[in-house]
């Protein structure tokens, strides 16, 4: 694919690289799918294209019509990917984002011409979702894509990421990814389970609930509607929580195999290693994991250069994942 008509044609078809040098078991191969190779820099490019195309298909967005506004809550990558796609398609984008994300994310949104609407940092992504919902109710004329509930989100992974993984790694036995909106896990998980029964689907969750102090009670909790719609509890085989320290340690370890990855990808790699450790030594296994994005947007966190205790302490206040 040396020459393409549009940057959007470069979304997807990402490479898979063997990172088994970091596997704790000689009988377990670990392969990482490099989603940072997408043009706006993350796995969310697939989702952004899918969300916008779905809105255009159902007539909520019309290419070429001036003054159309798209709005979305995002702690980073979806907003950045949507900003790129919206600029190409001629839509104005407003991203509702917690104030305490890494500054590079805000800079990238501004670079793509998006407008940022601040939500309280202490309320994390929950607060951004809540504010976006109330703004959507006040502005029904804006197109609210709502990645947490939009079937076009998991569909992107069902139609592209899942088939790519099975084509490139037909021997896959486990798929490990971060939970986030659950779009990657629901889409890839459903595709793999339908086409290769027996594949285990593992979710990795950063302990963000520990630092969200905008919750008054557990009843203020949030489960993405797409997780419920796809019977997420039944689709997943295992779910593990990964701590900030492990995430930073594995983010750093990925440089040993030549990969400079974002911190959520370090967390997912930590989950892949936990998965590998459950596999008996007389069994072969092939784990596919996702590198969601590269490390550039996280340089200001000092994740690679500062004392790890300081980085972990900062992770309690700044959304890195």
């Amino acid at each position: 694919m040396a020459r393409v008509e549009s940057v959007l044609d470069l979304v997807g078809s990402t490479p898979v690289v063997d990172v088994s040098a970091l596997s704790p078991r000689a009988n377990v191969t670990i392969l990482a799918k490099l989603e940072g190779r997408n043009p706006a820099g993350s796995v969310k490019d697939r989702v952004a294209v899918s969300l916008i195309r779905a809105a255009e298909r159902d007539g909520r967005l019309v290419p070429g019509r001036p003054g159309q506004i798209v709005m979305e809550p995002s702690s980073g990558n979806t907003g950045i990917a949507l900003a790129m796609v919206c600029r190409l398609r001629g839509y104005d984008l407003k991203v509702v984002m917690p104030t305490n994300v890494s500054p590079e994310r805000r800079q990238l949104l501004l670079a793509w011409g998006a407008e940022i609407i601040d939500s309280p940092g202490t309320e994390g992504s929950n607060g951004a979702v809540r504010l976006a919902q109330s703004i959507a109710a006040e502005h029904p004329e804006w197109v609210f894509l709502y990645q947490y509930a939009n079937p076009a989100n998991p569909l992107a992974h069902y139609e592209t990421t899942g088939p790519e993984i099975l084509a490139d790694v037909p021997e896959v036995t486990h798929f490990v990814a971060g939970l986030g909106t659950s779009g990657t896990l629901m889409g890839v998980g459903r595709y793999l389970k339908e086409h290769k029964p027996g594949v285990q689907i593992w979710a990795v969750e950063p302990p963000s609930g520990e630092i969200v102090d905008g919750l008054r009670s557990l009843d203020d909790g949030y489960i993405p509607p797409i997780f419920i719609d796809n019977q997420g509890v039944d689709l997943l085989d295992r779910k593990v929580v990964v701590r900030p320290r492990e995430s930073i340690e594995w983010t750093r370890a990925m440089t040993q195999v030549g990969l400079f990855v974002g911190i959520s990808s370090g967390a997912i790699m930590a989950g892949a290693v936990k998965c590998a450790l459950t596999i008996p030594e007389d069994q072969a296994a092939t784990i596919v994991t996702i590198v969601c994005d590269d490390g550039w947007k996280y340089l200001s966190t000092g994740a690679w250069s500062d004392d790890i205790d300081d980085v972990v302490e900062r992770a309690k206040r700044i959304i890195y994942f």
Binding site: P73, S74, S75, G76, N77, T78, G124, S125, N126, A128, V129, Q147, Y148, G178, L179, G180, T181, S182, E205, P206, P207, S208, G209, E210, V212, L215, L218, D220, G221, Y222, I223, P224, V233, L236, D237, R238, K239, V241, G262, S264, C292, D293, I319, F321
Partner: peptide
């Protein structure tokens, strides 16, 4: 929820973490 729910066994010195369900991280 994936290892037996409320019937999941506890061993001595296990560490149990309670976390509220919140909207996801890198979304």
């Amino acid at each position: 929820r994936y290892i037996g729910g409320v019937d999941a066994p506890i061993a001595d010195n296990d560490e149990i973490t309670l976390l509220p369900a919140v909207a996801g991280g890198a979304a």
